[in-house]
Design a protein around this nucleic acid. Sequence first.
DNA 1: AAATCGTAGATTGTCAACAATCTGTGCGCA
DNA 2: TGCGCACAGATTGTTGACAATCTACGATTT
Lengths: 247, 247
Amino acid sequence: MSTALAPLPESSTAHLVADRIREAIWQGTLRPGDRLVETDLAERFEISRGPVREAIRLLAPEGLIVLRRNRGAVVADPTFDDVLEVYAARMTLGELALATVARRGVDRATFDEVTSLLDRLRDPIVQADPVSMLEADLAFQDALMRLSDLPRIAAMLENSGRDAASFVRLLGITYESTDHDALIARHERTLAAIAATNPAEAVTAWQDHIRSTVAEFARGYREVGAFSVDQHPLFAYLLSSPRQEES
Amino acid sequence: MSTALAPLPESSTAHLVADRIREAIWQGTLRPGDRLVETDLAERFEISRGPVREAIRLLAPEGLIVLRRNRGAVVADPTFDDVLEVYAARMTLGELALATVARRGVDRATFDEVTSLLDRLRDPIVQADPVSMLEADLAFQDALMRLSDLPRIAAMLENSGRDAASFVRLLGITYESTDHDALIARHERTLAAIAATNPAEAVTAWQDHIRSTVAEFARGYREVGAFSVDQHPLFAYLLSSPRQEES
DNA sequence: AAATCGTAGATTGTCAACAATCTGTGCGCA
DNA sequence: TGCGCACAGATTGTTGACAATCTACGATTT
């Protein structure tokens, strides 16, 4: 109900195209280093170059594609460093958002709405498809962060979530092996902390979540090929430092 | 020397226009609520609507202007909440960047380069002009954050710096009363911590810097008109919580 | 053989005209 | 008076053509 009456989605042509490009990258149709030629894309989508150009400019600041002056755009070729950086930003901004939520508290209705998004993650049909699972997970986390009433920070987190997913995909790491129950349990822990207006616990739960996720990816990355991930400064920062938040 | 051979600046027409618009907002030529009509701006700059449109799209995600579907863009009308949010993001991202710098250490040449940027802040001519002072300050902080080798996070910090400055300006707060010596001393403290590869101290110094800045603005805001800033959740978060960083 | 120069093709950057959409005003009607 | 509706003007969204720029490749020179 309340989601039905929410503001209409940003469905400009440029946004639609941007979503399609993101999807193509996700699916592997577009691979790292591939050029994004405005003319070609315009032809494929059967529109003019204007909106395509705008879509590319929309994607660029997220880091998914790289823009070079007068030379067009190419799909980014991320390293594991990039994934770590995005998750580090995600961790620290999430801490801020959740600490704010938990400190201020939220009204019952809004809280229930977010809780209901968690149900989708429990749906066996959703769990069967990695892509659906990822989307449901991101939708939940987005809603969670929006509780903070910090629109800028919530927006940064939304972008970083999409980026992180695509980066991981571009690196050739599969997301399928994730333990669904553990994921849901971590999210429940965060929600409980918010309900109890316990900022420190909310932050800790979030840190755990990011750490688990990064650890998962690091495992996948070591399998794929991979470098000495473990002594990376950010990796240390992310994994081994249960930082303290005041309550 | 090393700055002379650095990559060329992003000087596309759209970027130039975006800078001009930012400048106009800063100078007060464009005021909160003013509409940014593509046709008008194109005429003023004597170019077509294309680059103007692109410039507006460039400014929008930074929060300086608000975009409404099919209804164009207007200059944002920020509240002090917005300023706090931007500074909160700036504090937490800066902590991450500086902790990384201080943990990894930097080579002498790069460090000296950043140090030299601090000299500009000491120049009496620069100090005499608030705008120059602000620009020099931002340039220093940008360079400082770029030491982290975390390009995404450094970029977020750059944007937030420009935003914060414009927001403060839009709120009608003057920046002139800042104590220059104290500002420089805080920056020196951060640099010293980096040189000593002491992450905890670098983070603390940065927190102090943000706190001083926010406190300054809060004072100005109370003078201008203003609400009960002091019991804002983020204000509490920013000012009264010397959070702990591990070393 | 190596390096430089110049040209052709491809691609992005810019433009001005057209189409779609929105805002506000004034009229008719209860 | 208050409400709904239609229309005109203004403004954004989209398009296809043109200009500027870059890349690649081969000719020319040393």
